[in-house]
Design a protein around this nucleic acid. Structure first.
Lengths: 245, 245
DNA sequence: CGAGCGGTTGAGGCATGTCAAGAGTTGTGG
DNA sequence: CCACAACTCTTGACATGCCTCAACCGCTCG
């Protein structure tokens, strides 16, 4: 691990408040690794050996069943994933693969579990992080069950605009194929939906999004802070797609 | 609160390991309440003032958006719900209503938050509970995205049989209307699906379920421990529908 | 340059939702 | 105790959202 990584990790909500000694101890048993694009990091069902911290690059969390596959989340720096499996010492429920060249810190799950019995501030941070992940998952589930695909796309486009500071134009942070899977639809259906949304105030050309009539798009999307709101976690810098326990 | 309630609450995973003094302190500020059926306990969006513990009866957690509504979970004794919102001091993401006459313990959220900074064992238990809830939500989301409604129904029926001890016959624990909403489909569609499932090894008459060909049903449902598995929490006695953070 | 991949478009089909009606059940109030 | 209202569940007819399959374009990268 590079020495310059430590401050960045230390700055994470999860590690910010723990004692210096405990932080050092945890980092001492951890190590960094650099992965090429499209590499499988984790296979669902495997035992949870390491908490993963993304320092650079992008990671996709996905799930598979019976030959089908879907994207569950996309993780960007600096944040962690599969905390819950590590805590519970249980098998991963999701798989993970890199989307580009990615640098990751691996923290042994056993050390992690030992640490939050030892450091009260750390355990408080873990609780808060997990609660945030849980709530993000509830939001995602609500969106799936209460909205049709057209409404999900509209909300997503609107939310991305908000994350970028309510700008009218921005670039899609992920491939459309992946976005479709995340939103629970086929690439073909997303493509068609984007076409028809031009009549509702948003134009998408390649990966370029331009909101032409925010009011109209908002009327369609009916954004709701109990679905599209952001769980406040200081360093969860606006990820392209909601996050990742 | 009745004195005989305390042992039952104390037996909950969440409170089992904390110190006697801290448990008493927490209970001192809590109180029990008895609610009639079909009563709204919580409205989504409201601030999270109390952790709820179901002692008797049944509670439905549901979500609403834009005039639509869906069931997210059903909570049965003895377990808790909306822990995550209390921890984060954030608005509820789901609403809750009683399905029958229900007795509930209300634990002030502020005391809860104070306590897990004070009692290490308690905070470990909270972490574990939240991680379990998160994982249950991931399972539910996977089921929604990877399976069609027919497969979801088949898995559900099979899982209920397992929870009852791999019996061939059992009674549906919830109304079909509610089950349909939980599984992300309309009552009409559930009704039709159950009819067609008779050809695949399960017969449903009223609320009575009889598995006539377990192997055939299993081939259709493809049960997967990473979706249908049970997050081990000693006192989470087999709830009718996965649980409830 | 050709292979592979992402994206788009069209045609067609299936799954699922919508609307409507009726049977059976439950709960309630006269 | 009965009558009525309200509700669940079911079934049918119909509409439509979404998926599947296939072809094609353009781009990237060996």
């Amino acid at each position: 691990m590079r020495p310059e990584d430590l401050p960045e990790i230390r700055h994470l909500h999860l590690f910010r408040d723990m004692s210096e000694a405990n932080f050092s101890a945890l980092m001492a048993s951890s190590y960094a690794q650099l992965f090429p694009p499209s590499l499988d990091l984790i296979r669902q069902g495997d035992p949870a050996d390491f908490l993963h911290i993304v320092l650079e690059g992008t990671v996709e969390l996905y799930a598979a069943w019976n030959g089908r596959e879907c994207t569950m989340a996309v993780v960007r720096p600096v944040s962690t994933f599969i905390l819950a499996a590590c805590i519970r010492d249980a098998p991963y429920l999701m798989s993970a693969r890199t989307l580009e060249r990615t640098r990751i810190i691996l923290v042994p799950a056993a050390d992690l579990r030992g640490m939050f019995r030892k450091d009260a501030e750390f355990s408080v941070a873990v609780v808060d992080e997990l609660a945030a992940c849980y709530r993000e998952m509830v939001r995602s589930s609500k969106s799936l069950k209460l909205r049709n695909s057209r409404e999900r796309v509209a909300s997503y486009l609107l939310r991305q605009s908000q994350l970028a500071g309510n700008v009218a134009g921005y670039t899609l942070p992920v491939e459309k194929r992946l976005l479709a899977s995340f939103l629970g639809m086929t690439p073909e259906n997303l493509s068609r939906t984007l076409r028809t949304l031009e009549a509702d105030g948003v134009k998408v050309d390649g990966s370029r999004v331009i909101i032409t009539d925010r009011e109209k798009l908002t009327r369609l999307a009916c954004p709701d802070r109990l679905i599209d709101g952001i769980e406040p976690l200081a360093e969860h810098s606006g990820s392209s797609i909601p996050s990742a326990g």
